[in-house]
Amino acid sequence: MECIVHFEVMHGDEPKLLRGLILLGKDERPGEEKFVKMFARMGYNVRLDDAEELIFKPTDPSADYRWLRIRELDSGEEKGSEDRELNSIVANLLPNRNRPI
């Protein structure tokens, strides 16, 4: 299974949005080692600095980037997203307790 990793790299004062690819086995979730290897293949030698925010810092202090941050993982599965139009229609059909019928 393929997993597209959407991440940003802080070069100078402005982040650049990039993507990488990780190949996973069935029901496998990517971890620190997979991310570090993917970044290394792209020329970014990093270590995990903040596991909660998924921020990676360069292992070489003279690197021309300050950090990388994973923003999203896309494994091709449908994401459960809120349908605002449907919610609005349903809200209008349901009785409102604050207004008389």
Rank of each mutant, 00 (worst) to 15 (best):
N87E: 10
A40M: 14
M10V: 06
H11W: 14
L23N: 11
Y44T: 02
E14W: 11
R97Q: 13
G76N: 10
D60I: 11
F35H: 00
R99G: 02
V9L: 02
D49L: 07
P30F: 01
M42V: 07
R19Q: 15
N98E: 10
V90F: 03
C3F: 02
I55H: 02
F56I: 05
C3G: 04
E78A: 14
G12P: 00
I101E: 04
I89S: 05
E14N: 13
M38Y: 04
H6F: 13
P30K: 02
A51P: 01
H6K: 15
E33N: 12
P61W: 10
M38V: 08
V36C: 08
E33H: 06
N98H: 08
E72F: 12
H11L: 14
K34P: 00
D50H: 13
E53R: 14
N98P: 00
V36L: 06
R84L: 15
V5E: 00
F7H: 01
M42A: 11
P61G: 10
E77V: 09
G43C: 06
F7A: 01
R66M: 08
W67N: 05
D49V: 03
G12D: 09
L94C: 06
L93A: 10
P100L: 11
S81M: 10
D60V: 11
L68P: 00
E77Y: 06
L68F: 04
E82Q: 12
K57E: 05
N98Q: 05
S62K: 15
D74E: 15
H11C: 14
R19P: 03
F7Y: 15
I4R: 15
D50Y: 15
L18M: 10
K34E: 07
N96M: 02
N96W: 00
N92A: 09
L73D: 05
L18I: 06
E14A: 13
D27R: 12
E72C: 12
V46N: 00
D83P: 04
D13Q: 14
T59Q: 13
D13R: 12
G43E: 09
V5I: 15
E78V: 05
R41C: 10
L23W: 11
D27E: 15
Y44C: 01
G20H: 03
R66H: 08
F56W: 02
L23M: 14
D74F: 07
G80F: 09
R84Q: 12
V90L: 08
R71E: 15
I70C: 07
L23D: 11
L23V: 13
K37D: 08
R66W: 02
E32G: 05
L86Y: 13
P61C: 08
G31R: 09
G80K: 12
E82G: 10
G31C: 11
N92W: 03
L48G: 00
P100N: 11
C3M: 09
C3R: 04
A91T: 04
L18A: 06
P95T: 02
L73H: 03
I22G: 02
K34V: 04
K16Q: 15
P100R: 09
N96Y: 01
I70W: 04
L93G: 11
R41I: 07
E78H: 11
N87L: 09
G25A: 15
I89A: 12
R47L: 04
N96S: 05
F39P: 02
A91Y: 07
I4K: 12
A63P: 01
E32H: 07
L68Y: 02
L18E: 06
